[in-house]
């Protein structure tokens, strides 16, 4: 029997995952090999230690609220998309009228038009940048409470 196959069978045997035929095969090999018996003992020791442990169970309330929390996240995602689309529509509308009413108006000087356009663009870029940073900080904020 290949070594790898034997290791798989032995592991499955230790976990009770073999059918009758597999069990008989392993038991035959165990009877013939001291090394194999030691290997099985070693595996059982690890299983025995961890069998006395379990993952910490949360309160039942966590499971009661779980779906609601997932659903709220899905909704918020949709909300952000709608807000972004709305903001883009409004900004585009505003930009169009800005171009139409101010930039195409012959009265203000060219230097004023350049100044106002540049400042407006700068404000938009800063706003997007600050919003993005606030969202990023909000995601990681809870770690600031941890004492190092």
């Amino acid at each position: 029997m290949e070594n790898d196959r034997l290791k798989e069978l032995l592991t499955a045997y230790a976990d009770g995952e073999l059918d009758e035929e597999g069990r008989r095969e392993v038991e035959k090999r165990l009877a013939e090999s001291e090394n194999l018996r030691r290997e099985l003992e070693s595996m059982k020791k690890v299983k025995s230690l961890t069998s006395h442990m379990q993952l910490a169970q949360p309160e039942e309330e966590v499971w009661n609220m779980y779906w609601n929390q997932v659903y709220n996240r899905i909704e918020r995602g949709i909300g952000w998309i709608l807000l972004s689309v709305g903001a883009i529509i409004l900004l585009s509308f505003g930009a169009f009228h800005f171009v139409q009413d101010f930039l195409l108006d012959p009265e203000p000087s060219l230097i004023m038009k350049i100044g106002v356009s540049t400042a407006t663009l700068g404000v938009i870029i800063l706003l997007v940048s600050v919003l993005r940073e606030r969202l990023f900080i909000r995601k990681t904020e809870r770690y600031k409470e941890i004492v190092r």
């Binding site: 290791k7 798989e8 592991t11 499955a12 976990d15 995952e17 299983k47």
Partner: peptide
Amino acid sequence: ASRLYRAR
């Protein structure tokens, strides 16, 4: 089974 063997 083989991953479990190596992990253990």
